[in-house]
């Protein structure tokens, strides 16, 4: 575990020494500020539009941070050949990969925390309310979703040839799952065979990331979800996370380093 955490620690250090997150955070603040300065029909009490803009930016920033940070980990290690002195130490490839995953996930979690604190401040400034339980649930679920995306991206970084291809595919896959994934069964029902069955199988195979999207709940002030469902969704997310990580470990163990 110590070895995994050591690798994770380096990933986190890399994230906060690179400019990516700061740029995204500043952009989020600026665009939110701009949206906040808009006055609609001279009504100062309008809050949800601003909350929605801010949360959408947070989702986008977090996804960009998670995918781009993860996608470059293994390729960068191979390209800069830092993987060689690392693997010359008593650490297995599986531990390196788990360390990379833990690092990316924790780094994304830290980035998310900063972004949600900003959101809470923005929201409180407009609505004078702080629904802490809702925020904790939204943050937790968002982080779990990023865990799945990170595991998927890590697998992609081993299987796919270039980080750019991996990043593009992961963005398309993630947004595709979020927007279309929940309705694949409905589309499948209207299709002829065998396309319908294939799409239906895909519907059951993909990780349903929409479970983890609490944006609407936060924007529109829905009450918190029963914790047992949050727990069940977390277990569901971890199952996918484990599948992707296992596949990544198997692929990485077989991968030639040169």
């Amino acid at each position: 575990m110590n070895k995994i955490l050591a690798v994770a620690n380096v990933v986190i250090k890399e994230l906060y020494r690179r400019k990516d997150f700061y740029v995204l955070f500043i952009l989020t603040v600026l665009i939110t500020g701009l949206a906040g300065s808009l006055r609609f029909f001279d009504d100062e009490r309008i809050a949800r539009f601003l909350k929605e803009v801010c949360l959408s930016l947070i989702w986008l920033s977090a996804l960009v941070v998670a995918v781009t940070t993860t996608a470059r980990q293994i390729p960068a290690e191979r390209e800069s050949r830092t993987i060689f002195p690392l693997l010359a130490k008593p650490i297995s490839r599986t531990q390196v990969l788990l360390g990379k995953f833990a690092g990316c996930w924790l780094a994304s979690g830290i980035a998310l925390l900063v972004l949600y604190v900003f959101f809470a401040i923005v929201s409180a400034s407009k609505e004078h309310a702080f629904p802490a339980v809702n925020y904790v649930q939204a943050l937790w679920m968002h982080w779990q979703m990023l865990g799945i995306v990170i595991a998927m991206t890590l697998l992609g970084s081993i299987v796919l040839t270039t980080p750019a291809a991996n990043v593009t595919i992961m963005f398309v896959v993630t947004t595709g799952i979020l927007f279309v994934g929940p309705y694949l069964n409905k589309v499948a029902a209207k299709m002829t065979e065998p396309s319908g069955s294939i799409l239906s199988a895909l519907y059951f195979a993909i990780p349903h990331l929409e479970f983890f999207d609490f944006r609407n709940r936060i924007v529109h002030g829905w009450p918190p979800v029963d914790w047992k469902y949050v727990g069940a969704a977390t277990a569901y997310g971890w199952a996918y996370l484990a599948i992707f990580l296992l596949a990544a470990c198997v692929a990485f163990r077989r991968k030639a380093l040169n």
């Binding site: 069964n185 609490f214 709940r217």
Partner: peptide, 14 residues
């Protein structure tokens, strides 16, 4: 909902 994914998803959606 027609399947468990839809039924489960409803707990998280508005």
């Amino acid at each position: 909902g027609s399947d468990w994914i839809e039924r489960f998803g409803k707990h998280f959606r508005a």
